[in-house]
Nucleic acid binder design. Structure first.
Length: 601
DNA sequence: CTGGGTGCTT
DNA sequence: AAGCACC
């Protein structure tokens, strides 16, 4: 019952798009090597707390793996050079530079964490094919085609593979990073095929092989967008591998999921995915939250919130947009559910609380008091502060922003996204242009509440805007980032121990389930794994492994799960603005990528 | 006691 | 608007 149905189903679906997924090799390590080329020739590990979170390939030759204890790594490789990677500033900066290179293609680019991007090169392929030339595939092909798809997708994907190669070349030439690329007709396949040949290489898959390829994945969890809850539900119905999911009747799925979800799961398992590449722009919300053992005193709540607000205003000021909606979140102490169970209230706020002066967002003291009173009002909707209470979390977030309009013409709401993105990434440009011709107008027509934001409150005139003061701000933030390293919780593992037990149980019961060939030989000793799974160690994030998982645990997992684990900790960590414009001081080496890394204070 | 986001569903 | 699921 192995999927072998690639015979006549090739016309399925829509092959018209060409999508490339980009993944930077051992990202943190590469950033450090770019900053300091001497590191290229030595085994290098990036250290966070007591863990080597990733390493360069030189170090991997010694067996130094991601997420290894520093002491263990040094035993394997006494010469290992360790660099502290707790300050994410330069990684973010590098990530943004890569994003910028991708933007230069004039195609939709979607950022996924620090070192992953999707690019929809459909239009580019079209143009390239129009100017007709040979269509040789570059890089690896998942499998040779057995048939010629009449829609011409194979030719297009070959062209796309050339573009992928161009991108990799360009990123390497301009920034010095080696990256992997996956090329396919949708995002799902592009992402999953990307790591097949690592490092510094690329892979293409034709639609014809989508089903076969998907069936090589042992866990449904390997599919992006299938998270822990869905996996749990699926496993409880003995749907464990992607192949299982492919074969399950849709009716069965519809009994346990919404109809839409059922259909989506099914098509994902078959390698179908019509979700578009969404251009990454500014974040839709900016928020902070603080969790703690318990807070039961009103004044303490006010303190926490006040501090949160102060920090949040810094972020909003950096963002530059005027918020028009505010949300307060809290979590009550609950013996039952440990996590989640958050409650929130939100409301519109008057943009007049904020003013823009010389290109900088300002909140007056009065404005801050206004915000505090709004917050406390929302707070009172959630909880009666005069009665006993126990909170374990409070959060604040600005959730809507006024849209930027070009001053002259309201013509182009269309290009807005583009402008916004550009200005996020090119502060130089932003400085030069934004002040000259930007004005702001309310986004939501619900301005009934807001006293009209008179033009007097809007930016008065072109000025020399934002300055280097940002850098100091960034440094402060970075310190906080170090202070709260992320931890991987057992419950967040791709398969938690409970699920793994179920899996091994089921595997034993249904003998000779003979799972479809694996992408890589994986140990089948899953029950063993589930025992050690509990031993999650403390530490911070790394770019190649999720967190401080015991190496043995991590290694015992199937490759796909390692991939997913790896992907898990990588948060889109708020499109971080690169505040530091390239220094003009380094005139001697204008093209040096070093200029992107502004020296720390 | 990770936070900080996004998007879907109701 | 609020809650859930996911990354």
């Amino acid at each position: 019952m192995q999927s072998s149905s690639s015979t006549c189903s090739y016309v399925d679906g829509d092959h018209s798009r060409s999508i490339i997924h980009i993944d930077v090799d051992c990202f943190y390590a590469q950033v450090e090597m770019v900053k300091n080329p001497e590191l290229r020739s030595v085994p290098l590990g990036i250290q966070q707390k007591n863990i080597v979170v990733t390493s360069n390939y030189e170090a991997r030759n010694y067996g130094v793996q991601k997420c290894m204890l520093v002491t263990d790594a040094l035993k394997l490789c006494p010469n290992l050079k360790l660099v502290n990677g707790e300050d994410l500033h330069d990684y973010r900066a590098a990530s943004n530079k890569i994003f910028e290179v991708l933007l230069s293609l004039k195609c939709p680019v979607e950022k996924l964490g620090m070192d992953e991007n999707f690019i929809d090169v459909t239009k580019l392929v079209q143009e390239k094919e129009k100017s007709g030339n040979c269509t040789a595939l570059v890089g690896h092909l998942y499998k040779e085609p057995s048939i010629q798809c009449p829609c011409g997708c194979q030719s297009r994907l070959k062209t796309a593979s050339q573009i992928a190669n161009d991108i990799r070349q360009k990123v390497y030439n301009e920034l010095g990073f080696t990256i992997c690329a996956g090329t396919a007709h949708n995002k799902l396949l592009a992402k999953l095929i990307c790591p097949l040949h690592k490092p510094n290489n690329q892979t293409t898959i034709f639609p014809e092989h989508a089903i076969d390829f998907m069936a090589t994945m042992d866990s449904v969890r390997a599919i992006p967008s299938i998270g822990s809850k869905t996996t749990e539900t699926l496993i409880s119905h003995k749907i464990i591998s992607v192949s299982d999911l492919q074969q399950v009747p849709i009716e069965l799925l519809k009994k346990n999921f919404s109809s839409d979800m059922a259909v989506r799961l099914k098509s994902l398992s078959l390698g179908e995915d019509n979700t578009p590449v969404k251009q990454t722009g500014k974040p839709l919300s900016i928020g902070l939250e603080d969790s703690f053992k318990t807070v039961s005193v009103k004044s303490e709540v006010e303190d926490k919130i006040s501090i949160l607000l102060q920090r949040l205003l810094v972020l909003v000021r950096e963002d530059g947009r005027i918020p028009v909606s505010l949300r307060v979140t809290l979590r009550k102490k609950d013996a039952k559910r440990l996590s989640s169970h958050r409650e929130s209230r939100q409301c519109q706020i008057s943009p007049s609380i904020f003013t823009i002066t010389n290109g900088t967002l300002i909140v007056t003291d009065a404005g801050q008091q206004k915000l505090m009173s709004i917050i406390m009002r929302l707070f009172n909707k959630l909880i009666d502060l005069s009665k006993p209470f126990h909170l374990t979390l409070v959060g604040l977030a600005f959730t809507k922003f006024q849209e930027r309009m070009t001053g002259r013409s309201s013509i182009v709401n269309y290009l807005m996204n583009d402008i916004s993105v550009q200005s996020v990434l090119n502060l130089q440009n932003d400085c030069d242009t934004s002040a000259t011709s930007m004005d702001y107008s309310a986004a939501s027509p619900s301005s009934s509440t807001t006293t009209d934001l008179s033009d007097a409150e809007v930016e008065p005139s072109p000025k020399k805007p934002k300055k280097v003061t940002w850098i100091a701000k960034r440094r402060c933030l970075a310190k906080e980032e170090v202070a709260s390293p992320s931890k991987l919780k057992v419950s967040e593992l791709r398969l938690n121990s409970k699920e793994l037990e179920k899996v091994s149980e089921l595997r034993l019961n249904s003998r000779d389930r003979s799972l479809t060939p694996r992408a890589s030989p994986a140990k089948d000793n899953l029950s063993d794994t589930s025992d050690t799974m509990k031993d999650v160690m403390e530490g911070g994030p790394c770019d190649d492994c999720p967190s401080y998982v015991d190496k043995e645990v991590f290694d015992a997992l199937p490759d796909e799960m390692q991939q997913e684990l790896k992907a898990m900790w990588k948060n889109p960590s708020s499109s971080d603005v690169q505040r530091t414009s390239p220094r003009t001081t380094n005139k001697s080496k204008p093209n040096s990528i070093l200029k992107y890394f502004v020296p720390h204070k």
